[in-house]
Amino acid sequence: MPIAASWRTLHKGFCSVLRQFGEHGYYLRDIMRAARETDTWPRETIRQMRVIGVESLLLTVIVAAFLGGVTAFQTRFQLFPGVQLSAVGLIARQSIVLELGPLLTALVLTGRVGARMTAEIGTMRVTEQIDALETLAYDPVAFLSLPRLLAALVMLPALVMLANVSAIVSAWLTLILATDVRTVDFVDGLRLSFIPFQVVYSLVKATAFGGAIAFVCSYQGYIAQAGAEGVGKATARAVVITSVAILTLDAIVAAVLAPFVQA
């Protein structure tokens, strides 16, 4: 009997996972269909780009500056005697551009932008504003989801690029002001083994993370249950799922593209 119960639980969980994937698939299909509603999503996309990009710029740059400074500072004092100081520039660049810049920017924006998306769309769902849009012959996906997804796909790489620059400049300033690393050492390390594809790799990650944030968070808001509690639960679930999705995508991108970023 317990075995049968366990089997039923397992089967139910497995079916739930498959249903979740299927519902996400339908949602993605709706987003792609919504691209035809060209009268609806372009203006909203610009507004969402401002919300996601411009309004997050200061936070992103500050977080990246601290990230770069601390990474470089700690790297310098982890080196043992005999290691050339240019290694600090190399390690800082590789850490920031290939991993920390895109990843931390995405995680920060998950809380800053993703939670806001879920809360906005979820509130519209529970207050039946989405139903009202459908009544007015507006495609709610074209008005709510597609602009956020496009905005995130465009603005995340832009923010990550600026975050990388901010982190590297912060690393340079930290090193020359607080350590014995000279500018020439840092620049030598920055240029060592650099290939432009490393920047492309960073942007690929940023694009993937932006898509994950917008897709997951807008979906969780879209399916939010009634009441303030339902919106709260949807927001918390969106942050958790998005964070896990970002880390999973980070691993997938690294597994696929990491061999190509080596000079």
């Binding site: 411009v54 690029m161 600026l162 920047v199 942007l203």
Partner: peptide, 20 residues
């Protein structure tokens, strides 16, 4: 938004060219 995108692209391209 346009300003942010231009600054971002310019920073990325300039940084990449400078490093490479």
């Amino acid at each position: 938004v346009g300003l942010l995108l231009i600054v971002s692209v310019a920073a990325g391209v300039a940084g990449t060219v400078w490093l490479a």
